[in-house]
């Protein structure tokens, strides 16, 4: 029994470790923080670490532009609670929501929501921020949604 549990734990660790890995190409992306007057950052991907998906991009913005971010981490990946002055507030039903222009990441569930930015329709991401695809030329929009 001990042997089977040990094998199981090793397999579980490998599986879950594989979930968080995301690599991406060089180039640049646009990150938008969705205030009433949205703030736009153009991020050079050569300057960003390539290990935590969109979280790496946010951490780069934190270091370079003092963008305040807060998140909790669990086996499911990182969960954003604050980006700039956008902040989660469960009492009022406000949660951070991330939208993307990368089609392969679109949310395909019934909860999918959209935002228009400069004539482009961005979909809510169906993947967590550590698994999101970061590719040259894409736009990622961080906003707040009320449930």
């Amino acid at each position: 029994m001990k042997k089977s549990i040990a094998i199981f734990l090793v397999c579980l660790t490998l599986l879950l470790a594989g979930c968080g890995q995301q690599t991406y190409d060089d180039g640049s992306i646009i990150v938008v923080i969705g205030y009433d007057q949205p703030t736009e950052y153009t991020v050079d991907l050569t300057k960003v670490k390539k290990d935590k998906g969109f979280l790496s991009v946010l951490q780069y913005l934190q270091e370079e532009y003092n963008l305040e971010i807060a998140y909790t981490d669990s086996g499911y990946g990182a969960y954003l609670t604050k980006v700039g002055s956008l902040e989660e507030n469960p009492l009022s039903g406000a949660y951070i929501y991330v939208y993307t222009s990368v089609q392969s990441d679109f949310d395909v569930s019934q909860y999918a929501v959209f935002v228009d930015y400069k004539g482009e329709t961005l979909w809510s991401s169906g993947l967590g921020i550590t698994q999101m695809t970061i590719e040259d030329g894409c736009t990622i929009y961080v906003g707040v949604i009320y449930w």
Binding site: F8, C11, L12, L15, L16, G18, C19
Partner: peptide
């Protein structure tokens, strides 16, 4: 599917 496989293995 990774999460479903974990549940199955568990």
């Amino acid at each position: 599917i990774v999460f479903y496989l974990v549940q199955l293995a568990t």
